[in-house]
Design a protein around this nucleic acid. Structure first.
Length: 203
DNA sequence: CATCTGATGGTCT
DNA sequence: GACCATCAGATGA
């Protein structure tokens, strides 16, 4: 299996988000290979996307989104979880793709240890869950995915059978609806809660 | 099954 | 000091 080249990532963020479906995320850690098929993604664009970290310009945290495509962007959220993103955009712009769910493939036993759950179906069916299962932390922030121990490789059992379904998300605040989520239809490992937060109660 | 809530800490204002 | 690209657990149907 070949790692995806930089040229795969140096394209339109939304196109890359769709084409990441069916690819395999692999992490070599402590002599064990952990891997999973990407089954759910979400594109975050640059200055035109109010839901994106990059919307208000570059800061220390979001700087990987402005950096070279093909890197990882990992950030800590809600005081508990890491989210893993793939940096992908045309040169001179910003953008990244949140990996929202994986179908576990290799190292499932170790994933269960990292996650402290027994059920394979809840191992990686959410952005915070999959980073925990794959052993991805802030230390991977900025790493290139085209070389090294964390990478995206071509090929999975879904290679010729991928259904891309775009699902608009409801934002948390007014004006943050512009989100682009893609799934492999009917895959049992897509997130149960598709990132849609209930609207705040009216007073 | 669906819906709601508390825990949690880094980032930005 | 408010916000949050989340999750597990609890509760109700």
């Amino acid at each position: 299996m070949a790692m995806l080249p930089i040229s795969f990532y140096s394209r339109d963020t939304i196109v890359v988000a769709q084409e990441l479906l069916g690819k395999v995320l692999q992490h070599e850690t402590s002599d064990i290979i952990l891997s999973g098929i990407i089954v759910e993604t979400e594109a975050y664009l640059g200055s035109e996307d109010p839901a994106s970290h990059a919307y208000r310009g570059q800061t220390q945290r979001n700087s990987p989104m402005f950096d070279a495509s093909g890197r990882a962007y990992v950030y800590f959220i809600y005081g508990n979880h890491y989210c893993f993103n793939v940096v992908a955009h045309h040169q001179g712009t910003a953008g990244a793709i949140l990996i929202r769910a994986l179908e576990p493939v290799d190292g499932i036993h170790l994933m269960k240890q990292f996650r402290a759950v027994k059920d394979k179906k809840t191992l990686t069916n959410g952005p915070g869950k999959l980073t925990q299962a794959m052993g991805i932390t802030k230390k991977n922030n900025g790493q290139f995915l085209t070389s090294g121990n964390l990478c995206v490789i071509n090929g999975s059992k879904y290679l010729n059978n991928i259904n891309v379904v775009a699902t608009p998300r409801i934002g948390i605040k007014k004006g943050t609806e512009s989100l682009y989520r893609f799934i492999i239809t009917d895959n049992p490992y897509i997130s149960k809660r598709p990132g849609i937060r209930n609207p705040k109660k009216q007073q």
